[in-house]
Simulated scan of single mutants.
Amino acid sequence: MPSSWTDVEKDTADGLPTMLAQNVIIGTALSVGAIACSGFYLSMIGNVASLVPWALMVVLVAVAFTYVVGFALLWCVESFTLRMRERFRPVAYGVVGAIGYGVWGLFVMSSLMNSLDQPLNGVVLSNGEIAALTVNYAVFGFVAYLLGQTYAKRLAARRGLAIGLLAAQIVLAVLGLVVGVMMFSALGR
């Protein structure tokens, strides 16, 4: 365990820091979940876009959470579980991930969906749809953070795989940003 918050914990001399490996796992799990559920989200807003561009935008939301809010949540849960038994840590990580990603889905994803649906269809998400979206995001957050805590040391030792997964996330997120700019600029015309 690091003695100071500025210390970076590494298991091997040539491996990645554990927290970076955790975030790569979390980002990968959330990206896969975003792609898997993008059709569900699109049907909630009346199929106002094509599936592949929409999936890229949903991946952008997942990756943005992972590398903006995700590091802060990992520091919080690390402090929270410092004296916890090792076997309970993945569940604690999962609970924090469920809360964090659920709130992200409630505010960020529902806002994105409403900002597309309202100008095109004149409606916004109902309370039931927002609740379903939030629960869906909370479940993926739980699973992603649980996996991140469980498999971080294994991925940290496999530097090439971790960098490949990180690069794939970044490419998909950049494509999602390009698609999002194109969609919202078309709405502004």
Rank of each mutant, 00 (worst) to 15 (best):
F184A: 06
A156D: 07
V179C: 11
G128I: 01
L161H: 07
G188N: 08
M182R: 11
M1L: 12
Y137M: 12
V68H: 06
M19Y: 06
G180A: 13
D14T: 14
A36V: 15
E9T: 10
A132T: 03
I99D: 02
V181Q: 04
S43D: 14
G100F: 03
G46M: 08
R154D: 07
L147S: 12
A138M: 06
L125S: 10
G39K: 11
G122M: 08
V143T: 01
A138D: 03
G164P: 09
M57E: 11
L125I: 06
S185N: 03
R85S: 15
L161M: 15
V77A: 10
S38D: 07
M113A: 12
Y151N: 01
M183L: 09
A72L: 15
G33D: 12
L82C: 15
E129Y: 02
T28E: 06
G188D: 09
V178T: 02
W54C: 05
P17T: 00
Q118V: 07
A157R: 14
E78Y: 06
G176M: 00
G176L: 00
P119D: 04
Y151P: 01
V58I: 13
M84F: 10
K153D: 13
T150I: 05
V61E: 11
L42R: 11
I26H: 03
S185T: 13
A131E: 04
S4H: 09
V77L: 06
A98I: 07
S3I: 07
V139P: 02
C37L: 14
G128L: 03
L146M: 12
S110K: 01
G15F: 04
